[in-house]
């Protein structure tokens, strides 16, 4: 244990990786809260899968493998995917869930085509794109962390700035419109931030599992509080906790992939929260029901009510 803390503070690589994972957890937890509350949990899944062809195309077009270039490609592809899902569901009889499924899988399939195509190219520079599938925390370097933290700070700052507007959008969009707020624009900004949060996590967690980082911290946090601000803070904390513990696990246990480890950690938090959270938690509710029944019986009530 002590050694672990030693490593966390003094082992340069581990510290870098853990910092990156923590930053990603904070941002995805905070933005994911809004996605979950707006019933857009699975949109996050579609966006993250759709990032793959964006990454591949960015590489094909620029020949550059730096994180900033690839992640820009991911962000653009994610935005296009969101736009397509909304329009397929809005303009035709195809329903939202089908639209999500199609965009998610077709974009991902196209991404694989590009990836395999790139692998066949006689170009020494091509290796390493696969790490975006499951993420590869170990490969994260200081510069990546700086990019992640920079993007994350921008996202969090905007979230703070437009807090009131985002809350209005999530709770009662029509009411916002009647007060004169351009709700479509606010929606666009929030969705862009969601795309940003996803992009930040791709290097560490990968496109396949990224959606869990949006959904799980938010769902866990929701159980402990009825206050949106506290929920968002708590989700950020849970996200960071899972991110750091997952990467630490992956670096201390041999052949433990980071992305899946982070997902298991965050899912563990969900289970804990759903079971043990005061008031909302399953055990709390069961206990309350039990006590009520006891009291009812003590008052001489019939058993089978």
């Amino acid at each position: 244990m002590i050694e672990l803390f030693n490593n966390l503070f003094f082992d340069h690589t581990l510290r870098t990786v853990a910092l990156g994972a923590g930053a990603l957890g904070i941002v995805s937890g905070a933005l994911g809260s809004f996605a979950v509350l707006r019933r857009q949990s699975l949109l996050g899944d579609a966006i993250s899968h759709a990032a793959l062809p964006g990454i591949a195309l960015a590489f094909l077009l620029t020949g550059n493998k730096s994180a900033l270039v690839l992640l820009s490609g991911a962000a653009i592809a994610g935005a296009i995917a969101t736009w397509l899902v909304t329009n397929i569901a809005g303009l035709t009889r195809v329903k939202y869930d089908s639209a999500l499924g199609i965009i998610l899988s077709v974009f991902f399939g196209f991404g694989l085509v590009l990836l395999t195509y790139i692998q066949k190219q006689p170009n020494a520079n091509q290796a390493g794109l696969e790490k975006y599938l499951f993420g590869q925390a170990a490969a994260i370097v200081e510069k990546d962390v700086l990019i992640m933290a920079g993007l994350g700070l921008v996202a969090l700052f905007l979230l703070f700035l437009f807090w009131k507007e985002f809350k209005l959008l999530s709770f009662d969009r029509d009411f916002g419109t009647t007060m004169g707020y351009p709700m479509a624009l606010i929606d666009f900004v929030l969705t862009t931030l969601l795309v940003l949060a996803i992009v930040i996590g791709l290097q560490t967690v990968g496109v396949v599992l990224m959606s869990a980082m949006l959904i799980a911290p938010a769902v866990a946090a929701r159980q402990w509080t009825d206050n949106l601000a506290i929920m968002v803070l708590l989700a950020a904390f849970f996200g960071a906790l899972a991110g750091v513990s997952g990467t630490v696990a992956s670096s201390t246990i041999s052949r433990m992939p980071a992305g899946p480890a982070i997902v298991v950690a965050v899912s563990f938090l969900v289970v804990l929260s759903i079971l043990f959270a005061p008031r909302r938690g399953v055990i709390w509710q069961r206990g309350r029901d039990y006590l009520l029944r006891q009291r009812f019986r003590a008052l001489g009530g019939k058993k089978d009510v």
């Binding site: 509350l37 809350k167 999530s170 709770f171 009662d172 029509d174 929701r222 509080t225 009825d226 206050n227 949106l228 929920m231």
Partner: peptide, 10 residues
């Protein structure tokens, strides 16, 4: 019925 009454707010 147009809003989510489980929204975390007071």
């Amino acid at each position: 019925g147009t809003v989510d009454w489980d929204f975390p707010t007071s």
